[in-house]
């Protein structure tokens, strides 16, 4: 099995931070705000591995640090400490020591990101096809016809009617916007895809169709994915392994069915017990 990503001791503190930050926050302290200096410990000591074609779930409530961790890996946020190694095509990239240009190079070509809020992932002033074109053009594809063809087939794959390729995303439904985001994220066939609460706020039937699409893609191109969600149903269907986070810490990790049926930590037990 090929390793795609190895994250070690990832931490992210918002604020100036102090020596007590990590000791005085976390699930035991029942807070992620440091009582001595007021900094927010959004994530601390997050470690995990990800293999080719694997889907890893990160589960937790709002403010648990699940999105922060993913944003650090996608370079949307700068981590306070920790390391992450990305293995790609026989090469290794130490993500947090790369310069900004190298990071953007990776995130625009080798990573994909689908945000909960389509406004973050899509440019609403340009057409659906144009959004996909942008990512392709970053990868130095400069043939208009080829770009058009690729954008069209990606939209079709994401079950967006190709007749709407030239429509602006704001004229699309929420589910359709997520599909365009997914098509855009996949346009470079990235080996690593981040999905941040992608089905939150969508109708159940639309959710199912999006999950379906994600699973199909995972099987087709063996993209490794990190799925961030607070929805246990999504985790159960998608993820082989799951991390549970609370107050910035990973409090439990394991095979997804084990985490859901035999949760070890009090918080996970409560979370699972209160699921609808």
């Amino acid at each position: 099995m090929d390793k795609v990503l190895e994250v070690k001791n990832l931490s992210k503190v918002y604020g100036k931070g102090c020596a007590d930050c990590f000791g005085l926050t976390g699930p035991q302290a029942d807070t992620n705000i440091c009582p001595s200096c007021g900094s927010v410990v959004a994530a601390h000591d997050v470690s995990f591995d990800l293999y080719k074609g694997e889907i890893l779930g990160i589960m937790g409530e709002s403010g648990s640090g699940k999105s922060t961790s993913v944003k650090c890996l996608f370079f949307d946020e700068e981590p306070t400490s920790g390391s992450a190694v990305f293995y790609d095509d026989g090469k290794q990239y130490n993500l947090f020591t790369l310069n900004a240009a190298q990071q953007r190079q990776l995130s625009s070509r080798r990573f994909g990101m689908v945000y909960q809020n389509p406004y973050l992932g899509l440019n609403f002033d340009i057409s659906a096809g144009g959004n996909i074109a942008e990512r392709l053009l970053m990868s130095s594809i400069s043939h208009f016809g080829a770009i058009r063809e690729r954008a069209s087939s990606l939209l079709q794959r994401a079950e967006v009617p190709t007749a709407r390729i030239d429509a602006l995303p704001k004229t699309f439904s929420g589910g359709m916007q997520q599909r365009v985001q997914i098509a855009k994220a996949l346009s470079t066939y990235p080996p690593l895809l981040f999905l941040d609460e992608v089905t939150t706020g969508l109708d159940l039937s639309v959710q199912a169709a999006i999950l379906d699409l994600i699973m199909e893609i995972q099987q087709e191109i063996e993209t490794a994915m990190i799925v961030v969600t607070h929805d246990l149903g999504v985790i159960r269907l998608l993820a082989g392994r799951t991390l549970v986070m609370k107050y910035g810490r990973v409090i439990e990790s394991g095979l997804t069915d084990q985490v859901l049926e035999d949760p070890q930590h009090a918080y996970t037990q409560r979370l699972v017990a209160s699921a609808l």
């Binding site: 694997e54 082989g240 095979l255």
Partner: peptide
């Protein structure tokens, strides 16, 4: 865990009384 996932994929199968599958 990765080893278990691989064995579940290749060698060990479990027929439960419940069916957890993708909708659609």
């Amino acid at each position: 865990e990765h080893h278990i996932l691989q064995l579940r994929n290749d060698e060990i199968s479990f027929v439960t009384q419940f069916l957890h599958v993708l909708p659609r």
